[in-house]
C-alpha cells in the first residue's frame, strides 16, 4: 500500500467520521457508507474496509447514542461490506469510461447502495436483537421503518453522488482508478 493510498484512507476516514457527527440529528441518513464504498471503488477493497473500520473505531466508541459492544462489532464488520462491494465493482469497472452512460450508472450505483445496505441492516438488526434478547424476526420487522429509510437514503446518495465523487477522486489520483489507467 503506497503513501498516497494511506493518505487517502486517512482523509476519507476523517471525512466519513466528520459527516457522521455533522448528520447526528438526521437518523439513518449518513454519508459514511457512501464514502467507504467510494474508497473501496477507487483504491481497492482493503482500502474501503480500512476506511469503514477506522470510522467505526472512532464513531462507534465516542457516540452520543451510547455504546453496545455487540452492536459496535457488528456495525464495524457490516460496514466492511461497502468497502468489499466497492472494491469488487472498482476492479470490474476499472477500465470502463463513465461518459455516455451516466444515467445507467447512476441507477446501477443506486441499486449497489441499496443492496449492501439490506445486508448491513440485517446484520446489525440481528446483533441488536441478540444483545437485547428480542426475537430476531420481530426486531427486523419492527425496525423496518428505519431500515427502509436507510436503504432508500443510501440508494439516493449512491445514485446521485457516486459518479461525481469517483470522477473527482480519479482526477485527484492523476486519471487512474483502481491502479488501472482509464480508457
Amino acid at each position: 500500500m503506497n503513501s498516497f493510498k494511506i493518505a487517502m484512507i486517512a482523509t476519507l476516514a476523517a471525512l466519513s467520521i466528520a459527516t457522521n457527527y455533522a448528520l447526528i440529528g438526521v437518523h439513518q441518513v449518513k454519508l459514511m457508507d457512501f464514502i467507504v464504498f467510494v474508497g473501496g471503488f477507487c483504491f481497492g477493497a482493503l482500502a474501503g474496509v480500512s476506511i469503514g473500520i477506522l470510522s467505526w473505531l472512532i464513531y462507534g466508541t465516542i457516540n452520543p447514542y451510547g455504546f453496545v459492544p455487540q452492536v459496535w462489532l457488528a456495525t464495524m464488520l457490516a460496514e466492511s461490506i461497502y468497502g468489499i462491494v466497492g472494491g469488487f465493482l472498482g476492479k470490474t469497472l476499472a477500465s470502463t469510461s463513465f461518459d455516455g452512460q451516466r444515467f445507467k450508472l447512476c441507477v446501477f450505483f443506486a441499486t449497489m447502495g441499496f443492496l449492501p445496505t439490506v445486508l448491513y441492516d440485517l446484520i446489525t438488526n440481528v446483533a441488536w436483537a441478540s444483545s437485547s434478547n428480542m426475537p430476531i424476526v420481530a426486531a427486523i420487522f419492527f425496525g423496518a421503518q428505519f431500515t427502509v429509510l436507510h436503504e432508500v437514503a443510501n440508494a439516493a446518495i449512491f445514485g446521485i453522488c457516486s459518479v461525481p465523487m469517483i470522477t473527482a477522486l480519479e482526477k485527484l489520483s492523476g486519471g487512474w482508478r483502481y491502479v488501472v489507467p482509464k480508457k
Partner: peptide, 21 residues
Amino acid sequence: IIALVMLCWAIVSSSVLGYYY
C-alpha cells in the same frame, strides 16, 4: 438494471408489509 431495481423495490415492499403486519 431493471431486474436490480425490481429487486430493490421487492425488498422495500416486503419490509413495509412485514412492518405493518
